[in-house]
Design a protein around this nucleic acid. Structure first.
Lengths: 342, 342
DNA sequence: GTTAGAGAGCGAAACGGTTCGCTCATACCG
DNA sequence: CGGTATGAGCGAACCGTTTCGCTCTCTAAC
């Protein structure tokens, strides 16, 4: 149906090799160039990237594997990655494994079957076994949001520990002593770091850490919702809570609204990850903010370096681990209690 | 590097054709089946989908082309589409054209070059010219959120006119007469319908329509932000405003917060598209809600029907236009003024 | 016991490109 | 003017599958 190179050779009298050379930017006599371009125009010829992929063993396609496509973090990242990759003529094929390790492993197989040239992923699994196929095939991998101990990959992540430390320290400086954290279970890599930051800030200020103030769970809205209710119902509730990811922040705010618990009067809070949200909510939330676009940009560029061979195909040359800083965005959700106590 | 079918033939002594038959679910003698499976295991063989794509002229890949990947609507839809398609073993390759018609057209070419089996798109352009390539190649297309007058495609959209009518009617029933709408310019298909619904509701109630209360613009947060400020600064401001999409809703709420304009006391509002948002904001927003997952499901299934040949490849048999209803979700952002005026 | 029919296997030709190594013509040099 | 470098063009092999049409064997029916 669609025109092929062969149709062009027929129309121009040139050989396959010559037309192919033209298509790949090689030098061709001006008259032949004109003839080829004319034929392409007339025949509506368009390179068949599948055939080219078979011949060159490169598909100009990158797989992006993620736990949850439908959240701000993931979609912002994918949008930016797609943008950058396509500027270099790479396509982006997405897979959402919904936080399921089995599905994640299968997704890698799926992507490798499609012979993607590289894989960018926000991992779900806690070790890199599921990436073995990519490694042995020599397919470059870039990790977002975590690293693995059992093998080194290129990676881009945020200083989770620092982000959390900063937020909790802020609360301490404002005079809070009973500070709770709602966070993910340690099985989530990012949650581990954020919890560490909490500990560091508390210890540094010589504040006691109460396990009842540490609410671990999954990374869903519901967890934030349930946990803050639980915290506020305690006979000795915290005066401040650090909401250590986006969904948790949403859930907690919803719960506070429903229970008509005023913040910062009854409880001070610092949220995570959505700037717009902080302006929509009243009073405005203090927010820890990740540089999402920068994360995506770095990840895409690490991948392009591998793809264009600027660095070796894989761990041949050393991998790069990039850590970015978060920032904290002011709001009115913290009550200043410094000076209250003797 | 990677094992091929040929490696399997060498190991088993069988022919290419036989192994291929096995791979495609054909019948093979039990002993041969065992031999092949053993070889696959040992060699870590994995079908090369690129080669298969070349041979079969089907890549098991669908292109999804969208204006803005990083918003709730798009990402929710993509997540669901990807989910459904992959259950049928199709991959999803995404393109974000950022609302740019040139980029949109180029993206179609890009996708066709990659020989996707079908294209699902939320169009940016106002006519279907950019889809010509897909049509002449026989690549099925499913439209989301709009249809075209110059050619029929399968499509899934929402009853925009009805959604808007419902919202405005609600405001009227609550006794409002000076009702404004902040919406997109008519060049956006969805905006046109939503504006029509506004007109119908107003006319049906014999209310005068003032052009100053109709704020058209782009579909960005900033437009909502600017417009509501403008409306509230009028000497004769509206008592209610319908915020006819997600970004506009965000922008308007932010502006109201910043200006400390209390709603619903000073102005009643109905927002659009984000249920979670309505619970996070205080007081809770009345919201018009689109069935995003259902839109995605229908779109994916229309595509699968085409792909699996349940219906003809293209307009051969008639196209299907699916229209879904929106719902309206109650909040506390409307002041009841019925009975106020004689 | 013969034969029709089913089922399994095989060989070879696609699919639409890229690429290697060669030939040939032209231009340039001394 | 002979020799050589340069660069364009060409033929053929190859990438890893599928698929068509054929052969062969085995079973079952008569």
């Amino acid at each position: 149906m669609a025109a092929t190179i062969r149709d062009i050779t027929k129309m121009t009298g040139l050989s396959l090799a010559t037309v192919s050379k033209y298509l790949n930017g090689g030098n061709v006599l001006p008259e032949n160039r004109a003839a080829i371009e004319h034929a392409i125009e007339v025949l509506h010829y368009e390179v068949n990237e599948v055939a080219r992929g078979l011949a060159t063993n490169r598909t100009k396609t990158v797989g992006v594997l993620i736990q949850k496509l439908d959240n701000v973090f993931a979609s912002t990242i994918i949008a930016k990655i797609e943008d950058i990759l396509r500027a270099s003529d790479y396509g982006t094929i997405v897979c959402d494994c919904r936080g399921d390790e089995k599905l994640e492993e299968e997704s890698i197989r799926f992507l490798l079957g499609k012979r993607v040239d590289g894989i960018i992923t926000i991992p779900t699994s806690r070790n890199s076994a599921y990436l073995q196929g990519a490694v042995s095939r020599g397919t470059p991998v870039v990790l977002i949001d975590r690293t693995f101990e059992d093998r080194e990959f290129d990676s881009v992540r945020v200083d989770n520990e620092g982000a959390s430390y900063q937020a909790v320290k802020l609360l301490i400086e404002k005079g809070h002593r009973k500070i709770a954290i709602i966070c993910g279970d340690e099985k989530y890599y990012t949650a581990g770091g954020r919890l560490q930051g909490y500990f560091r800030a508390m210890e540094e200020a010589d504040l006691p850490v109460y396990s009842k103030y540490i609410r671990k769970g999954d990374l869903e809205v519901q967890h934030g919702y349930d946990s803050i209710r639980l915290l506020m119902e305690m006979e000795d509730p915290p005066t401040a809570v650090f909401l250590s990811n986006y969904e948790i922040t949403m859930g907690a705010v919803i719960a506070l609204n429903e229970e008509e618990i005023a913040f910062p009067e009854k409880v001070s809070i610092v949220g995570f990850d959505n700037l717009l949200l902080s302006r929509v909510i009243r009073p405005g939330l203090w927010m820890v903010v990740q540089p999402m676009e920068e994360i995506a940009r770095q990840a895409a560029e690490l991948m392009l370096e591998r793809l264009t061979g600027a660095r070796g195909k894989q761990d041949s040359e050393g991998t790069k681990q990039i850590t970015l800083a978060t920032s904290i965005y002011p709001g009115e959700s913290i009550l200043d209690r410094s000076g209250e106590e003797a």
